[in-house]
Computed example of a mutant assay.
Amino acid sequence: MDSPSLPPPDRHTWFEDAQALFAGTLFVSLALSLYNQAGLLTGGTAGAAFVLHYATGISLGQLFFLINLPFYWFSWTRMGKEFTIKTFVSVTLLSVLTDATPFVLGVGSLHPAYAAITGGLLLGTGCLFLARHRASLGGATIISLYMQDRYGIRAGKVQMAIDCSIVLLALLVIDWTRVAWSVLGAVVMSLFLWINHKPGRYRAV
Rank of each mutant, 00 (worst) to 15 (best):
Q159C: 02
V188W: 12
I162N: 07
I174P: 01
I166Q: 03
V183L: 15
V183H: 00
R178P: 00
A186C: 14
S182M: 13
L171F: 15
C164A: 06
L169Y: 09
C164V: 15
L184S: 05
D175Q: 13
R178I: 12
L172W: 15
S182F: 11
R178M: 13
I162L: 15
V173D: 01
D175E: 13
W181Q: 04
G156D: 08
A180E: 05
C164I: 14
I162Y: 06
T177V: 12
V158F: 06
A180Y: 11
G156Y: 11
V188L: 08
I162A: 09
L169R: 08
I166T: 06
V183E: 00
R154V: 06
I162M: 15
L169F: 15
W176I: 13
I166R: 05
I166N: 06
A170Q: 06
V179P: 00
L169A: 03
A186N: 05
G156Q: 09
V167D: 03
L171C: 08
V188I: 15
L169S: 03
V158D: 03
G156P: 09
G185K: 13
V187G: 02
V179C: 01
L171N: 13
W181R: 10
W176T: 10
D163E: 10
I174E: 10
C164D: 01
I153R: 13
V167T: 07
I153L: 14
A161M: 14
S165C: 12
V188H: 06
